[in-house]
């Protein structure tokens, strides 16, 4: 996994609540058995018109959003289906950081497995940032995961909270499974402590 320590990039804002993973990557694209190549289908039903051309009104299609790597979005982002394809699509499109007042739990966990940094910010800060962004007061942001701080290019700075374990994994691009296998003894001991019927089925 590609680590993330410090990231500077263009910000796109989607002023939408409860964006579910069906919108992020619609079901017709879940049939592929690879992890890559989902970026072109990101937000498919919002992003393209019925004739297949880009929808000029959709946030990501506006000229000023071209090349965005940071997504600023409203409450409960990533709700619904557990599909990790949503995170793969966001990453494949080029996003590295998402800021929102809240995220759905499964989506939030999936981000950390794929080098995508989700940052929870207070709702007041979201409103302030999205409104000033809409007025064109700022466009870019620098995020420092090591320091747990972020700064817009018009001088708003803030710090954010993140679980230390998740932060560590992301900073170093670590593979969870490799770490867990270091606890093989503990796992084997746990298994030996259970009664056989607790492992039913044979």
């Amino acid at each position: 996994m590609e680590p993330i320590v410090r990231h500077e990039g263009l910000v796109v804002c989607m002023n939408r609540v409860n964006v579910d993973t069906d919108q992020i990557i619609p079901k017709q694209f879940l049939k592929r058995i690879e992890r890559d190549g989902f970026g072109e289908f990101l937000f498919f039903d919002w992003r393209y018109l019925p004739d297949g051309s880009p929808n000029p009104d959709f946030e990501l299609n506006r000229p000023e959003a071209k090349g965005a790597t940071i997504l600023l979005v409203d409450d409960n982002f990533g709700c619904g289906s557990s599909r990790e394809h949503a995170v793969w699509a966001l990453r494949d499109y080029g996003f590295r950081v998402i800021l929102a007042p809240s995220f759905a739990d499964i989506f939030y966990n999936n981000c950390f497995k794929n080098g995508l940094l989700p940052i929870r910010i207070p709702r007041e800060l979201y409103k302030q940032l999205s409104e000033s962004h809409a007025r064109g007061e700022w466009r870019r942001m620098t995020v420092d995961l090591e320091q747990q701080t972020a700064a817009t290019d018009h001088g708003v700075t803030f710090s954010f909270e993140i679980d230390p374990h998740k932060r560590h994994m992301l900073l170093h691009g670590l593979d969870d499974i490799g770490i867990t296998l270091q606890y093989e003894d503990e796992i084997a001991r746990y298994e030996a402590s259970r009664r056989p019927y607790q492992f039913v089925y044979a």
Partner: peptide, 12 residues
């Protein structure tokens, strides 16, 4: 869980 976690559970 997500697919990365599916892999984790399969392995561990």
């Amino acid at each position: 869980i997500g697919t990365s976690e599916v892999e984790h559970v399969l392995a561990t």
